[in-house]
Design a protein around this nucleic acid. Structure first.
Length: 910
DNA sequence: TTGCGTCCCAC
DNA sequence: CAGTGGGACGCAAA
């Protein structure tokens, strides 16, 4: 396949053809669906206007415009007053209640928005919206257009054919099912043109059209197919046997009437034809005004993001990148760099290689300017003068560079003895800050999203997939040059997007500096006591064997103790134990449930099973750590800076942020992390109760702020206030309840969750929460405010302005909405803590360097830093770390830091 | 081999 | 029906 055809087939959006696409919307029925899908109490403006139906309708429409990319568009509405159908049958739709009060006026608002968006609105006295849609759909299809009908009325299924598709809402308005001829046939067992025949027999309750009693969709479909349509069924009415047949004959008039009423008109006289419905540019000013009054900040963003004229603003002209190999430069690399990326301009730098810990390597490097010139350098075969020029240029902090994931690039280049400095922009970090929920920020994705240019895979470079713009596809070299060029362009466009999202400072003052710190921490690694870990591993191994044998003994046969499925058979079938909580695939066998079963049955199998689980995991942890020890005797984790949506780091290969600490055996594993040669001790420094301190700061709650300034134990202080006893009279039980409550708040805890956590009644939990909020009213106010603000703006924010976008806050799915609310409660708190410790890392690293100390940072575990302290520096580093961590942010409460030192990570605990 | 489900470690 | 992660294992589907 040629690169060009690959590009065409992977183009975003619907199949790109020259055919016109007409989108026809049944305004009333979709607005109604939206009204019932979205809770009205969550959607009203400060002036009290309800907007849930408007919101849902627009949300759906914008999604369709984005996904279906129609060229033509119209919305039809029913009009007040009767139609020809009510004239023929007074009871038609007579069963419908009057529209609920909050719905009133929302249709008018939708009208207004449609006008502002320059969308054609169609309505005609005496006809329903569906008749208008049917008329347009049929004539559009005849003229060769592709038609999409959006309606919650099943009668529209009769329109479906190869050219006309109905999108029918299944739940709410966000999920539409595509009714094609095949889909109709599959669901109703009749072809679309016979759907009204079937509906006439079955009836349609929402239209107040009763069907034939005793005849359901199955029977109706059978008859319609057997007798070739409803006319045939009627003609053969006498031959239909059974009760259903008699019932049909008894209700024949009714069926004929139903059929007459559910036929959609296709000859309504209209002032416009399909060709007149071509999409027109929206009236931006009018839309802004309207959305201002509706307080639709999120929808505004979404709408303008889908509009073609906006997209085109962001498209940089397709650039043919002029890629040249360094060996072909007549004057060598130096002059090329001076010409194409002179001082003061950002250069795109693409590095190909492996970033493996300790032993990274780089093969190809490309440098490019925005102007469309790129040079590629084969690092395995480069002239000495060029190599020197390159080394100097890469290491020059005053020559700013754009790199995608500069930490990885730095590790690669280091394998070739090259230093990389002057990272002025990192496209992966910027992409993350702009959209922190994505988890993956591949260059190809950023290119499509921000430059509207697709990078396609070429088959070059030793089997490794290489991305290039299709017009530059070819060798690995040209691909690398093209990527470098894309990087240079992305810095502009992505930088502007980040600026709009208020993320520029975060990138330059937080993420880029912390990236440099992390890269050093990864390079240094932490020393492992392999003898100790080896001994542990074999000890755990023995315990695993012992408990497995004892467990088998207890039930008389062997079983895979690591298989929940097999365990369920043993516990619930063989041993007939009481059933535990349900999971998707059966009954849970988690530790809590097993402990409960043990309390009830005292069966020895359970005891050994639990111990086996415990020991097998510890063994695995020890073994995993041993496997990841590098030849230098140290463990080099990788910190990921673009994974956690809240701004936290994550750690992999191995994950050093989840090393056990709670149990005695777990602590022994921490003894396997020790101070390295030439250093005196490990030091840990953690923030105490940083999340509650942030809560105090953000909420401004006077009581909570007092609690921290009083110097008393936080939870005792809060408990004494809630239970109205002296701080020295608080019982341990009261303290732990309050502790769970306080921390639960930051997770969006419910009374149910709290009751389960504490093993108390829901009512008691609710009372506890009520009293808590009575005493600390600022907290409640803050929490409700966070969600309200996020719903209005679309995002939450940390103290450093880190955003998290939560579109699900307005979802019509309750579960998703509740989840988004809990995320909104948690993100500012967890995210602010992440901001603070990142600032602390930057400050600590800089202070260590400035003080000329050799002590260094090794690990970060969310609220804790681990350092390796040189002999004789302990006192100085202790003070320095306390100072830097304490000064990382200005809160209305102090940032307390506790510090400990020791030979191992365990000993350094405090 | 891949992806999902369950379980469990950390903060 | 408590937020953010990583990772091991079993198991079914491919």
């Amino acid at each position: 396949m040629s690169p060009a055809s690959t590009a065409a087939s992977t183009a975003p959006g619907p199949e790109s053809t020259d055919r016109s696409r007409l989108l026809l919307v049944d305004g009333h029925s979709m607005a109604f669906r939206a009204y019932y899908a979205l809770p009205v109490e969550n959607f009203s403006t400060t002036t009290g206007q309800h907007t849930n139906a408007v919101y849902g309708f627009l949300s759906m429409l914008i999604k369709l415009l984005d996904e279906e990319r129609p060229t033509h568009l119209a919305v039809a509405f029913d009009m007040a007053g009767g139609t020809f159908r009510t004239e023929q049958y007074a009871e038609y739709k007579a069963n419908r209640d009057a529209a609920p009060a909050p719905f009133a006026g929302q249709i008018d608002l939708i009208h207004e928005v449609m006008s502002a968006m320059n969308v054609t609105i169609l309505e005609r006295e005496g006809f329903e919206a569906d008749d208008i849609l049917a008329t347009l759909a049929v004539s559009a299809a005849r003229s060769g257009m592709e038609v999409l009908v959006i309606s919650g009325d099943r009668d529209t299924f009769q329109l479906v054919d190869d050219d006309v598709t109905v999108l029918y809402p299944i739940r709410g308005v966000s999920t539409l099912t595509r009714m094609t001829p095949a889909a109709v046939l599959e669901k109703y067992a009749v072809v679309p043109s016979r759907y009204p025949d079937l509906a006439a027999l079955v009836g349609e309750t929402s239209d107040n059209l009763p069907g034939v009693p005793g005849v359901g969709p199955k029977t109706a479909a059978k008859w319609v197919n057997l007798y070739d349509g409803l006319d045939g069924v009627i003609a053969n009415a006498d031959q239909i046997a059974g009760k259903a047949g008699q019932s049909f004959r008894d209700h024949l008039d009714q069926v004929i009437r139903n059929r007459r009423l559910n036929e959609l008109l296709i000859d309504v006289e209209l002032p416009v034809g399909p060709a007149d419905l071509e999409r027109r540019p929206v009236d931006r000013e009018a839309v802004h005004q309207l959305f201002d009054t509706l307080e639709f900040d999120v929808l505004r963003e979404r709408l303008f993001a889908t509009l073609p004229e906006i997209a085109e603003d962001a498209v940089s002209p397709g650039v043919q990148v002029d890629v040249v190999a360094v060996g072909d430069l007549p004057d060598g690399l130096g002059p090329w760099l001076e010409t194409h990326v002179p001082a003061g301009t950002l250069a795109g730098v693409d590095v190909t290689g492996t970033a493996a810990q300790g032993g990274g390597d780089a093969w190809t490097l490309a440098v490019a300017s925005v102007g469309g010139h790129a040079v590629t350098i084969d690092l395995t075969d480069v002239a000495q003068t060029d190599e020197q020029t390159l080394a100097g240029w890469l290491a020059d902090a005053d020559r700013p560079k754009v790199v995608h994931d500069a930490k990885a690039a730095w590790h690669m280049l280091r394998g070739r003895g090259l230093e990389l400095a002057g990272i002025g922009f990192d496209t992966a970090l910027a992409g993350y800050l702009a959209h922190p929920d994505q988890r993956r920020y591949a260059l190809a994705d950023l290119s499509v999203r921000y430059l509207r240019r697709e990078l396609v895979e070429t088959e070059e470079s030793g089997g490794q997939a290489v991305l290039a713009l299709d017009e530059n596809a070819g060798t690995a070299d040209t691909a690398a040059g093209t990527r470098a060029q894309v990087l240079a362009e992305l810095a502009d466009v992505l930088g502007a997007d980040l600026e709009r999202r208020g993320g520029r400072r975060l990138l330059h003052d937080v993420e880029l500096p912390v990236q440099r710190v992390l890269r050093e921490m990864e390079r240094v690694g932490i020393c492992a006591d392999t003898d100790n870990l080896e001994e542990l591993r074999s000890g755990f191994d023995d315990a695993v064997e012992r408990h497995a044998a004892a467990a088998y003994e207890a039930i008389g046969h062997e079983v895979n103790l690591s298989s929940p499925k097999q365990l369920q058979e043993v516990l619930f079938d063989e041993l007939d134990m009481p059933k535990t909580k349900k999971t998707k695939t059966g009954y849970t066998t988690d530790a809590d449930a097993l402990a409960e079963l043990y309390a009830k049955t005292s069966h020895p199998f359970l005891e050994h099973l639990l111990a086996h689980r415990d020991q097998i995991r510890l063994r695995q942890t020890a073994e995993g750590l041993l496997k990841s020890v590098s030849p230098d005797g140290r463990i080099h984790t990788t910190f990921h800076q673009t994974i956690a949506a809240t701004g936290r780091l994550s750690s992999t290969d191995p994950n050093l942020q989840n090393i056990p600490v709670r149990t005695a055996d777990g602590l022994r594993i921490r003894e396997g992390f020790v101070v390295g040669e030439g250093y005196g001790a490990l030091m840990t420094a953690d923030y105490s109760q940083i999340e509650m301190r942030i809560m105090a700061h953000l909420s401004g709650d006077a009581g909570l702020i007092d609690a921290f300034q009083s110097g008393e134990d936080l939870h005792s202080y809060v408990a004494s206030s809630v239970f109205e006893v002296g701080t020295d009279e608080v019982t341990p039980a009261q303290r732990s309840k309050i502790k769970a409550m306080s921390y639960g708040l930051a997770y969006g805890l419910s009374a149910f969750g709290l009751s389960r956590q504490l093993g108390i009644e829901v009512a008691e939990a609710r009372t506890l929460m009520d009293v808590y909020f009575e005493r600390f009213g600022g907290v409640r106010e803050y929490l409700t405010g966070v969600v309200a603000h996020a719903r209005r703006t679309g995002y939450t924010e940390t103290i450093m302005g880190r955003r998290r976008y939560l579109p699900d806050l307005t979802s019509d799915n309750r579960q998703r909405r509740d989840m988004a609310e809990r995320m909104a409660l948690n993100a500012p708190i967890q995210g602010s803590a992440a901001d603070i410790i990142k600032m602390a890392m930057i400050g600590t690293d800089r202070a260590l360097t400035e003080a000329g100390l050799t002590s260094r940072l090794l690990l970060q575990v969310h609220d804790e830093l681990v350092l390796e302290v040189a002999q004789g520096e302990e006192q100085q580093v202790d003070e320095l770390v306390r100072r830097e961590m304490g000064a990382a942010a200005e809160l209305s409460v102090p940032l307390d830091v506790s510090v400990g030192t020791g030979r191992s990570w365990r000993d350094a605990a405090h």
